[in-house]
Amino acid sequence: MKSHRLILPALLALAIGAGSARAAGELNLFGWSEYIPQSVLDGFTKETGIKVNFETYASNEELLSKLVAGGGSYDLVQPSDYAAEVMIRQNLLSPLDPRLLPNLKNIAPEFRHRPHDPAGRYTVPYMSGTVGIVVNTEKVKTPVHSYSDVFTPAFKDRIVVLNDTREIVTWALYTLKLPINTINAESLAQARPVVANWVKLVKVFDSDSPKTALLNGDVDVGVVWSGEAAILWKENKKFQYFIPTEGAHQFIDVLAIPANAKNKEAAHKLIDYILRPEVSVLISEAFPYTNPNQAARKLLTPEQLANPASYPPGSPKLETFRDIGKAAADVDRLVTDLKSAR
């Protein structure tokens, strides 16, 4: 019985101790867990003396809902392009001061001034990637280069796709040669029969780790994030990545400063630190995404540059997502309806 009496005060002391660290020169970072390697943050703290409090989320949607509901106070966030656009439109982001970001010149021009932030005032590209086709070439001998190659009865129950309603509808719109960023009742009506056929063929919908089903051999073909495909390729070269010929979704994960940030100066410092080529290359080493930092790309090994999922050959048709507003609800209803009907 005595030990029980000791637990409560001990736990309370722990709780208070853990909550009381609030020194000067702190930065509250809200990002994907481990997406900014701990070594980078440690290096930054060592150089500037600024302590980084790293709070993590698992998806853009989590980030958005927490900010919209009024939670948290952050100095730096790490959304993808379309989420950054929503935040700009809701006045949740603060404009950047280019004078504090001399290393911004390292970013390749094709990653600046994209539709989510046309003037480049609010966001700095961090890493980029695409959504494309990954094929287990040991099992599949026919060429699979387009969405219509993937979604054929031959691959019934051998397909994994992202569990994301917008993505699935986008691929259907690409095969119909319709614009992917203006979604209305008419284009959805055209996409409906296409999506209806597709969902019947899919074995797994998984946004978090689509590589699992591929590695396990439960499926042979996938439409997945390029980062997942790059990890698969590193594991086994039989997993080949292709950008669909009809066109593909490109995402750019960015760094941005919320409007209510308390330590904007430190946030600028961290952004500029990450933009240094020798720091940026550390991130590329940890995560095989496309690095928009052209100065850092010069430091990559030939093997890293040869990973087709990180640096796809040729000049494929790539588009970023725009926020589609109220149509998001219609897209969600369409896919939910078709999934339940199977």
């Binding site: 994907w32 867990s33 790293f54 993590t56 698992a58 978090d208 980062g227």
Partner: peptide, 18 residues
């Protein structure tokens, strides 16, 4: 907040990088 993040928050956040 950042200081009180629990294990599940960390674990699920790691899904992006594996």
């Amino acid at each position: 907040n950042a200081a009180s993040a629990t294990l599940p928050i960390r674990v699920f956040g790691m899904a992006k990088v594996g």
